[in-house]
Design a protein around this nucleic acid. Sequence first.
DNA 1: TTTAGCACTCTAAGCATGAGAGTGCTAAAT
DNA 2: ATTTAGCACTCTCATGCTTAGAGTGCTAAA
Lengths: 342, 342
Amino acid sequence: MNGLSARQKRILSLIVHEYIFSAEAVASKHLVEKYRLGMSSATVRNEMSALTDQGYLKQPHTSAGRVPTEEGYRYFVGQLMQDTSLPETMRATINHQFSQMHSDIKQWLQLAATVLANETHAASLITAPQPVEARIKHIQLIATHGRQALAVLVMEGGQIHQHILTLEEPTSQEQLSILSNKFSQLFAGKNLHNLSQYQETFTSLESTILAWLEDELVRSDRLPTGEIYMDGITNVLAEPEFADSEEARRALRLLEERSMLQDLLAQTVLPETIGGVQVLIGGEGNWNDLSQCSIILSRYGSPGIATGTLGVLGPMRMSYGRSISMVRFLSGILSDFVAEQW
Amino acid sequence: MNGLSARQKRILSLIVHEYIFSAEAVASKHLVEKYRLGMSSATVRNEMSALTDQGYLKQPHTSAGRVPTEEGYRYFVGQLMQDTSLPETMRATINHQFSQMHSDIKQWLQLAATVLANETHAASLITAPQPVEARIKHIQLIATHGRQALAVLVMEGGQIHQHILTLEEPTSQEQLSILSNKFSQLFAGKNLHNLSQYQETFTSLESTILAWLEDELVRSDRLPTGEIYMDGITNVLAEPEFADSEEARRALRLLEERSMLQDLLAQTVLPETIGGVQVLIGGEGNWNDLSQCSIILSRYGSPGIATGTLGVLGPMRMSYGRSISMVRFLSGILSDFVAEQW
DNA sequence: TTTAGCACTCTAAGCATGAGAGTGCTAAAT
DNA sequence: ATTTAGCACTCTCATGCTTAGAGTGCTAAA
């Protein structure tokens, strides 16, 4: 039952804001006074109670104020937050900084990392743009059992990707072989990023395969193998939720363990649109170490040519509006750079 | 009065070891039992008392064991520590890791950072080798007042270095001008690292200038402008002295603030010998943020061609023997790489 | 010179206490 | 049917007290 009343939305939003601001559980009375809500604290308390029942708020202990849950943050980010764009003066300042730079990708990435970290008060992370070089050499489909088929994708570089597909209906090996040939001829040597442009002319069986193909290609060029630029690690340490350095350690491990980072970037289905920003709140159940953190990610670059990822890592109690616009803005700047210089 | 008796040295050494191992103040009784010293705890207490008077030990509070002071660590590193070399198997393992690598400097540096961090359980830091390109364009000496003269060094790139020299005797501007010309002609276009090879033929006045020149040149190519490779930041967070993340933050700031790092590398007079290892204990009075840390540094590369710096940052309670040999060993590996590949 | 023995000091942990913060609930007010 | 005032209830946090234990420093004997 997701029907939050307008007032509940307002209160949830204020609580998120206030908690992000103060890092302390927010009390009904405090809210009424600070924001001059035209109602009594008891009313607010009732609403808070409802929001707690719905899983958007929680209490650290019985006699404390409320704190947003992960769900609360998600609702806030997804439904309540208005898309704050950066003030023009800030855009100008940042653009100016980049314009005063040599056209050296390393320097741009470093500057971007620094700006991102400073403006979001979080840790920033940028992977250098990776040229997309994966070209398809051959595609082979093998019937295995019932509606299952093994799809093998051989790349020109020799890498192999394979995947079990579940087809809509049982299909014979002959049919699959024909399909294999068709796909191989169609895509051999291609380095495709928007395979879906062919979509319409395909049967649904073909589309299934196509979807997988696309997935693999996107995935393969998402793994960062090159340099990673970071800044603002100490920003994270300054946050009260990381006063215990053990907690901080868990969060920062992401930035040091490449395998973990690869995992994250690989499993995170980033929207293909360059510039699309993705928000991961509280590890999303998959990453225990990140249970206190949020991550905001975006790809940048030119699709099919070279792309990289940039993002920030901060406490869950992070200023989402600002961080998201910042990530989006810098993603744009770096994309422009790649488009021009590549 | 630095005359420590052999027994005092032994005890100091054991205390340092034990404290590094346990991170807890070490008690006289504990020492006697664990190391089967053939004496009573009272005797050890007396010696400890003496060592405390001399400034090598301190007590966190009246009824606690002893902990080494910064002086204590220095004495240990300088006088007591035997130069532990790495076990042959470890050298082999590490060499093997590098040998399996492409001859790509970036990958080597990254690997070196990782190995260094893992083996020392501290944060590692490596600056990419910087080609030494500073060439002298012009040298000008200007008499100012009494025995003072202002020396200005103009580099081909346009950078200017200046310094007030104190000469052994008052010298007229004419003489200085003559000298200026001589030096300018002698060194113009040169990119000198071992100016002292000319030493013998010079007067002492000239030598003074020469010494400064050398200093500037060495200093100028010590500033890291290129990439910096790090690893093991979370190792530092695992140490109990950094359980309070504020303390950790102070330490790690060094790794993020380039200006601070430049400061450190510039002010630290590194021995010219490549491979020489320098140990900074507790910030040495100059860096407050590092008051809980120690740093072990070494330059690597080919003098006059390209050099970089590598080091580890850890708690003062760090395993010096191991860290120093590790730094020295990796310094050697990277130096060999630079010598071969440059 | 070393050591046994003991008094002394300081920390860390446990426990009780009280103030304060904030809620939940009930009954009255709108 | 909401909203609100009022109050009881709960939980935390800070404070102070007490005790056990660790480790030293000192003294006097070996």
